[in-house]
């Protein structure tokens, strides 16, 4: 790597970096700052010239319990989905990284993460078709079972949780798998040769060494789930009011943008707090 000495180098570096970072500034960092600013206004300057500064938008969060209740509901949803993803995904990553070998492993890994990169909205929509009353799942179960079964899953919290786990499960599998397959085989062999049982190997070697990857996956699931609104809307029906849908409403139907900005920013503060707490773990997982 070249040390920056000549001014020509400095100019070249600036030319290479500035377009991308100017773009990010214009499209991400300035908007986030603007949102903070607007969250302290009574009206948008372009709508009402008589706008003034206020703390009301944040005060509403404290005086009206609805907002805090919905925030807690979203955090609970995040915890539930994260726990589900970890419990289902980690064993899967374990099998993929430690049991299956060679080309089969590569193919299966690709199959697991492929849906993650495909359209999330369409995948949520596909669950609407499977879960709806008289839908595919009920047909399949009634065909298998001797008795009539009504699941009535659609438009419940369960439907939202199932859809979100389906959306974010590959994240946990991806990060856990990368951590697990980096563990030296000799370490496991050595433990086995000294008589360690499979459970001991998992508890004393594999789990501690892959924990950063697992936790990174958990954070990467939790954060977007707390801010989800499309999944609860489609799968949750009347049960699907969450903090995310509340924010969506302020922008697309109630048109109270300053309040929406304050709600968005409160969510961002919660998210940043979580990311800050997790950043030592995330840093470790990247190596």
């Amino acid at each position: 790597m070249t040390e920056l000495t000549a001014s020509a180098d400095r100019r070249r570096l600036f030319a290479l970096l500035s377009p991308a970072y100017l773009w990010l500034t214009l499209a991400v960092f300035l908007p986030l700052s603007a949102m903070l600013f607007f969250s302290f206004l009574t009206d948008l300057p372009q709508d009402n010239p008589d706008w003034s500064a206020t703390f009301d938008n944040y005060a509403r969060f404290l005086t009206n319990p609805t907002y805090a209740i919905l925030m807690w509901k979203s955090v609970k949803l995040g915890l539930m989905v994260t726990l589900g993803c970890v419990l289902i995904g980690y064993p899967c990553a374990l099998v993929l990284a430690r049991t299956i070998k060679g080309r089969a492993r590569e193919t299966l890994f690709l199959l697991v993460i492929l849906p993650f990169w495909s359209n999330s909205l369409v995948r949520i929509f596909s669950w609407a078709i499977v879960l709806r009353g008289n839908g595919m799942l009920e047909h399949a179960l009634n065909w298998l079972l001797p008795f009539e079964l009504r699941l009535e899953l659609m438009f419940t919290t369960h439907a939202v949780v199932i859809g979100l786990i389906h959306s974010y499960l590959p994240y946990v599998i991806l990060t856990s798998y990368l951590a697990l397959q980096a563990i030296d085989d000799d370490l496991v062999d050595a433990a086995r040769s000294m008589g360690a049982s499979k459970l001991t190997i998992l508890r004393r070697i594999l789990l501690p060494l892959s924990l950063p990857g697992l936790l990174a996956g958990a954070v990467l699931v939790f954060v977007p789930v707390v801010g989800s609104f499309m999944e609860p809307r489609i799968l949750g029906g009347r049960m699907g009011t969450y903090y995310g849908t509340l924010i969506e409403d302020q922008f697309v139907s109630v048109y109270n943008w300053p309040l929406g900005a304050a709600l968005s920013f409160t969510l961002l503060a919660v998210v940043l707090l979580i990311l800050a707490c997790a950043s030592p773990i995330l840093g470790k997982a990247r190596t």
Partner: peptide, 17 residues
């Protein structure tokens, strides 16, 4: 890492401004 809901609404506000 920031939920798209936050980024998206922030862009909307800023681009209008």
């Amino acid at each position: 890492a920031i939920p798209w809901l936050i980024t998206g609404t922030a862009m909307l506000i800023f681009f209008f401004a």
